[in-house]
Structures are given as C-alpha cells and as structure tokens.
C-alpha cells in the first residue's frame, strides 16, 4: 500500500473546564489513504467528532489539541507537515483546499442569511484566486456534479428553500469547492431518511472514484461502515481500540467491544420480537474514566485484575491493531504470548 495522505499519531484533545479535564480524544492512531475510506465508528461521546475537528484545528474552546501528531503528506511529495503544530494562518490554507468537512445536520450547517451560491463561492474566492464570475461558474459546475437539478437557478436560493437531501448535496459541493484531497464526513447521513441516505452514500463513493478522494467517514452506524469503508477504526472513550481492513473487522473482530457492536446490529434474518443484544451498562462519564482498560466495566470477556489496573498497549498484527490483553501485552509476560 502507498504512503498514507494523512496519519494521526497518538492524538490527545482535552477540554479544560471548571469541573475538571475531559480527555475527549486520548491517544488515537489511524492512517488515511488516497482513494480509500476510513470508517470511524463508536457510540456517541466516544470522541469521533472531536477527532475530526482536531484534524482541522477547529475544536471549540475550551478544547485543545494537547499532544500527538497529525501528519499531512504534501501534494507532489516532500516531508509530511504536522498540522498539530502549524500556525493558524498556515492552517487556514489547509482547511478547504486540503481537508474539507461535511456535517451531520445539513440545515444547521448552513447560514440561513446567505444564498448557497454565496456560501460556496466564498471558499473558491479565498483559496483559488478566481474572479467572481469564474467562481460562480465553478460553483454551478460543482452543484451539477453533486446532482443538484437546475444548478444555475438553485445557486441563488437560500438553504431553507431546499429539501434535506438536496441540502446535503450542496454541503458536499461546498466541501469539494477547493478540490480537497481529504474529506471528513461527520455523520453525513444521520439526519436523512433511508432512501436519501443511500443516494448520498452513492454520491460520496462516486466522487471518491472520480477524484481519488480520501474520506474519513464518521458514523455510529455499522451498516454504513459495511457499505462504504475500506478500513475501520473502532473508538471507545477517546481511543481507537481496534483498527484494520473492513472485512477483517467484520469477519474476525478481535476486540470484545467490536464484537459487541457487531452483535447489536439488527438484521432482517432475526426471528420477530426477539430482543437485540445490547452492550451492558453505559458509557462512563468522561470525568470518571475507569482505570486500566476503559472498557473493562462493560466487558464480557474480562481477563481479571490486569484489565482493571493496566492499560492495554496497541498490539500490531498484519494491517491490524487492537488494544486488548486478550491478544497480548500483559505486563510481565514475554511479548507475543497469548493468554
């Protein structure tokens, strides 16, 4: 496999509030490759969205990226740039032309006070050095590309005049305005009905094939992951507990949390009126993160005291990584031994 476009290494993002420190992202690692989709999956509050915002350097205050590296490989080679230490002014030239963002709520993600044309051309004018007329022509072209009918008329409409699906298409057009290499889609289909969802996912896949886009797809929906992702990172309480190619994750999940998530997907094959298996307990409050492996209070395959006292280190095996003592890393034991 070629070098990744974007590598996140040991990323830490914390919110320092009056009540204490919330470690929203606590040591996340993953790689994103050209033309491939990385699915980031996990329950609400596991730090998926904060990871996305950390990459763009737009975490809301009082949140801050406290450590780790976000390495972006520049276009045409050269040593990677660490976005975590990039000054604001330089970072602004990354947002849009290099990495762009699509959001969950297409309604709230647009300002209702400006036409969609205004909001799309804004980034084009800022980054691409085009004149007003050329920027407008490009915006119409983008709208056409994402399948907005009558783009030359729609461009002068306001977001509240469009349907939900159309708004999400426009949102994608806006994200692609400056030809980014990485697209972060944060729950892009959650607010849409099922048929529209499928259309938007098709559109994303289509755009990826045409442009070699690297996509980070954030979702809590295992179905969306199965359909879209090439690689998967499963997150729990600010950590990627398991990463690997999508077939491996689905066919041979190694982390108990991944297994539990996969068990809780409803299928049409199930007998009617049987209860879906759920994961016991709920996500701990971020202030009160369990010691040891953060998942141990809910884990059905707990090994014993070691899970409560020690944090499992990342264990690497051919393209996969897992953080669980089931697969080694127990302190004191020789490396590589299985319990």
């Amino acid at each position: 496999m070629a070098d990744p476009i974007l590598s996140v290494r040991d990323l830490h993002t914390q919110f320092h509030g009056r009540e204490g420190i919330v470690r929203a992202v606590d040591g996340v690692d993953f790689d994103v490759f050209e033309g491939r989709t990385l699915g980031v999956v996990g329950e609400s509050g596991c730090g998926k969205s904060v990871t996305a915002r950390s990459i763009l350097g737009i975490v809301d205050r009082p949140g801050r990226v406290m450590g780790g590296q976000i390495l972006l490989r520049p276009q045409g080679g050269g040593p990677p740039v660490d976005l975590a230490t990039l000054p604001q002014a330089a970072m602004r030239r990354i947002r849009g032309p290099e990495i762009a963002l699509v959001f969950q709520e297409p309604m709230a993600s647009f300002s209702q006070h400006y036409t969609i044309g205004n909001q799309i051309t804004e980034a084009i004018l800022l980054h691409m050095g085009l004149g007003k007329r050329a920027a407008r022509a490009r915006a119409i072209e983008l709208l056409d590309m994402v399948g907005v009918p009558q783009p030359d008329r729609r461009i002068d409409e306001y977001p509240f005049q469009l349907s939900g699906g159309l708004r999400q298409r426009v949102m994608i057009a806006m994200a692609l305005a400056c030809d980014p290499r990485v697209l972060i889609a944060d729950e892009p289909t959650t607010a849409l009905d099922v048929t529209t969802q499928a259309q938007i996912l098709d559109l994303l896949r289509d755009l990826q094939q045409k442009r070699g886009l690297a996509i980070i797809l954030i979702t809590h929906d295992m179905g969306v992951i199965a359909e879209m992702a090439h690689d998967v990172a499963v997150m729990y309480l600010g950590r990627a507990v398991e990463t690997g190619p999508v077939q491996d994750i689905f066919n041979r999940p190694r982390h108990p949390y991944t297994r539990a998530l996969l068990r809780s997907i409803p299928t049409v094959m199930a007998r009617p009126r049987t209860r879906l298996p759920t994961i016991e307990g709920s996500i701990p409050h971020p202030f009160d993160r369990p010691r040891g492996c953060a998942y141990h209070p809910r884990c059905s395959e707990k090994l014993g005291a070691v899970c409560e006292t020690h944090e499992p280190p990342p264990i690497d095996t051919e393209h996969r990584q897992v953080r669980c003592f089931l697969h080694g890393g127990i302190p004191g034991a020789p490396p590589g031994t299985q319990p």
């Binding site: 604001q88 947002r95 849009g96 800022l126 980054h127």
Partner: peptide, 25 residues
Amino acid sequence: KPYVVTARAKGLSETRVILKYPVRA
C-alpha cells in the same frame, strides 16, 4: 451553531467567520 464550524472549516479568518455569520444572525 454548526454553521460557524462550517465557516471555519472553509479556512476563513476568525474575524471574518464571526462578523459574516453569527453576528449577522
């Protein structure tokens, strides 16, 4: 509101983001 994040994600300067979007609203 999310549209402020959208504006930031476009690479606008913070002043521009605030004056153009939330202040207008």
